[in-house]
């Protein structure tokens, strides 16, 4: 459905997107994951024909974004990072306007507007001015705007940014509900969002693909195989000291690495990483207690996106070095 080959976008001297290639099949939900400034928005803007690529090609439903932009635009629903709303319009008026803009036949417009209002749960707000809506409802109107012409491809730029937790859950459910009929690309910098809504993930960093596009399960398995645990020990009369505690932890079977961290109130804090596929929490607890020390905290540390990036970029460099 979407095919991007060697896509590069330069703004003056800065390279926003550097030689990206990926493909998205029909009906997939793909998460576009990356830190701020990674080139997510730029890639999406190229796909929506808002920006032309500097080099490379992007095709949506078989149409090239440069050669047949009108055909591409007809098949794309786009929700930019800040929903493109006119505050002086009422919700229904706005949706009517967008429906006409997207070329929906006149007689179908009222029906489509009703449908998307219901779908996005904004039915009760139909006659409200957009300027009076809360952030969450604006986002929904933005989403309604994107799906009103029933596009083959939906492109959502950070659809949950700036929402409260309840709204985030609702928006995710909404997006999941749209899957199947539409091919969806959504960008985010939150890993858990990708896990919860997407089947496939494309990780992008500094304008480059950080890992080949993969399914979410594969990626998490690869990254979550190793466990990371925070261990806090309270020394009694200066025993143990940091060095001996670290040595003891390193001896636990299955531990790959022990990193000292800043503990509070004189307590010692370590971050212990396990080898691939090993559960080490029980052993660590036993080791500390058997040494006669006070174990004050033992907690699994979630791998943050930042770390995943570090790992991915590190492994890429390593792979590059081998070649």
């Amino acid at each position: 459905m979407i095919k991007v080959e060697g896509l590069t976008k330069r703004y003056g001297r800065t390279v926003a997107v550097d030689d990206i290639s990926f493909e998205v099949q029909k009906g997939q939900i793909v998460g576009f994951l990356g830190p701020n400034g990674a080139g997510k928005t730029t890639t999406m803007r190229v796909l929506t024909c808002f920006l032309p690529p500097t080099a490379g090609t992007a095709r949506v439903a078989g149409f090239d974004v440069l050669e047949q932009p009108l055909e591409v635009k007809r098949r794309i629903g786009y929700l930019p990072e800040s929903p493109p709303l006119y505050p002086e319009m009422e919700v229904r008026e706005y949706l009517n306007f967008v429906a006409r803009l997207k070329g929906i036949p006149k007689r179908d417009i009222p029906r489509r507007v009703e449908e998307v209002c219901e779908r996005c749960a904004i039915g009760d707000y139909r006659d409200k001015l957009i300027s009076k809506l809360s952030r969450g409802y604006r986002q929904r109107v933005g989403l309604a705007q994107a799906i009103i012409h029933n596009p083959d491809v939906l492109i959502l730029d950070e659809p949950t940014a700036g929402l409260d937790p309840k709204q985030i859950i609702e928006t995710r459910e909404l997006i999941k509900g749209l899957a199947g009929e539409h091919t969806i690309i959504l960008s985010t910098h939150i890993l858990s969002e990708v896990e919860q809504t997407c089947q496939h993930v494309i990780i992008i960093n500094k304008g480059k693909l950080a890992a080949p596009p993969d399914t979410v399960e594969n990626l998490t398995r690869r990254l979550r195989g190793a466990e990371s645990v925070a261990v806090e020990i309270e020394p009694r009369n200066g025993v143990p000291d940091a060095a001996s505690a670290q040595r003891r932890l390193e001896q636990v079977a299955g531990v790959s690495r022990v990193l000292p961290r800043d503990g509070r109130d004189g307590r010692l804090l370590f971050e212990v990483e396990s080898l691939q596929g090993r559960q080490v929490r029980a052993e660590i607890a036993r080791a500390v207690v058997e040494a006669g020390w006070n174990l004050t905290e033992l907690r699994p540390v979630a791998l943050s996106l930042e770390k995943i990036f570090l790992e991915l970029t590190a492994s890429e460099q390593a792979a590059g070095g081998e070649r």
Binding site: F50, K73, V98, L101, K102
Partner: peptide
Amino acid sequence: RSGTIELLMTSPVR
């Protein structure tokens, strides 16, 4: 300023 230009320019309109 408000970003609605993105709506206009990504709609099938010349």
